[in-house]
């Protein structure tokens, strides 16, 4: 028979245990707020300074010695083009490497060493990639201080992220689906192209975006390979100019990117340039958020038709 005294004791124990619940929830909220509030404060401060500076001319003007006339045309075009090269180089290489490691590679010590090294690559400081690229792409391959060199450098930088994300996405596919495909008589390539890639594309995309978001803000390796800090012309558009440029001539053009433009402006003594830097920073954050937004939308569309 349960005594009411026992019941009181049980309730006291529950109440005590629940205090820990409360404590941890508060601790969690606090930890979360450190990150969220810091970012919000920085972003709001930057927006207050920068947004009034944003107008159409800001996007269509080249940098200038006079802060009021300076714009980010060469920087945002440079960033978009470098990102394009980065994505075109890193996505096929990263996805193919990830698929190979998951589906084809024999499980032995060589594969193990490769796996460990891929994880380690993700932790190498980006300036080291910059030095490697300076020697390899800029001088040895003779690509020069170009969009191509920068794009390939950033591609190397985010390759480990894409490989790891691809492997995680593939591992999330249930073993039974995998076996189902082989049991139908599919080859490994048929299994990869008909099942593995379609079902893991949402996860792979997330990895690509995380990688690209990191690459878009990178400054050190780009400076190392010799991006210009002041540039008042655009890369040649395909088939434009006289004599007409080739389809891919722009990849060998000199360039600058958003973070370098910002860095350049913040190091000027005039206050007006700091405002420019804030405005450019706002645009850069907006570009990153837009990329993330697009990824979330595409991921949602892809996942809608995938149910196990």
């Amino acid at each position: 028979m349960l005594q009411s005294a026992d019941l009181d004791a049980i309730r006291a124990i529950i109440a005590r245990a629940k205090r820990w619940d409360m404590f941890f929830a508060l601790l969690g909220i606090l930890s979360l707020m450190v990150g969220v509030l810091t970012f919000t404060a920085l972003f709001v401060d930057m927006a207050i300074q920068g947004v009034p500076r944003l107008d159409f001319e800001f996007f269509t003007s080249f940098p200038s010695r006079r802060a009021a006339n300076a714009g980010i045309l060469s920087a945002w075009v440079g960033t978009v083009l470098v990102m394009l090269v980065t994505a075109l180089a890193a996505v096929p290489l990263g996805v193919a490497a990830g698929v190979y490691l998951e589906e084809y590679a024999p499980k032995n010590w060589i594969t193990d060493i490769i796996e460990i090294n891929i994880s380690n690559l993700a932790g190498i400081p980006s300036i080291v990639y910059g030095l490697l690229a300076l020697g390899l792409f800029v001088y040895y391959f003779g690509f020069g201080q170009s969009i191509l060199s920068a794009g390939l450098t950033l591609a190397l930088l985010i390759l480990p992220v894409i490989i790891v994300a691809t492997r995680e996405a593939i591992r999330a596919i249930p073993q039974s689906i995998h076996e189902g495909s082989y049991a139908c008589g599919a080859t490994t390539w048929q299994t990869v192209s008909d099942h593995i890639l379609p079902y893991s594309s949402a996860g792979i995309l997330t990895g690509v975006i995380i990688g690209m978001a990191r690459a878009i803000g990178e400054t050190a390796p780009i400076i190392t390979i010799g991006a210009l800090t002041f540039i008042a012309f655009l890369p040649p558009a395909p088939f434009a100019g006289d004599p007409p440029a080739g389809l891919f001539e722009w990849i060998f053009a000199p360039f600058t990117v958003m973070p370098i433009q910002m860095f350049n402006w913040t190091s000027r003594p005039e206050a007006a340039f700091t405002v420019n830097a804030a405005a450019a920073g706002f645009v850069l954050v907006f570009m990153t958020l837009a990329m993330n937004g697009l990824a979330i939308y595409v991921r949602y569309r892809l996942r809608k038709n995938i149910k196990w």
Binding site: S176, I177, Y182, A183, D194, K307, W308
Partner: peptide, 28 residues
């Protein structure tokens, strides 16, 4: 596997249409 097919413990239809699920073993 083309001569001997298999049905698994847990139903494992591919995340594709009903038609494509059945057609898959013919497509390969």
């Amino acid at each position: 596997r083309m001569r001997i097919s298999m049905v698994f413990q847990k139903p494992n239809p591919f995340p594709k249409s009903i038609y494509e699920n059945v057609a898959y073993s013919l497509r390969v």
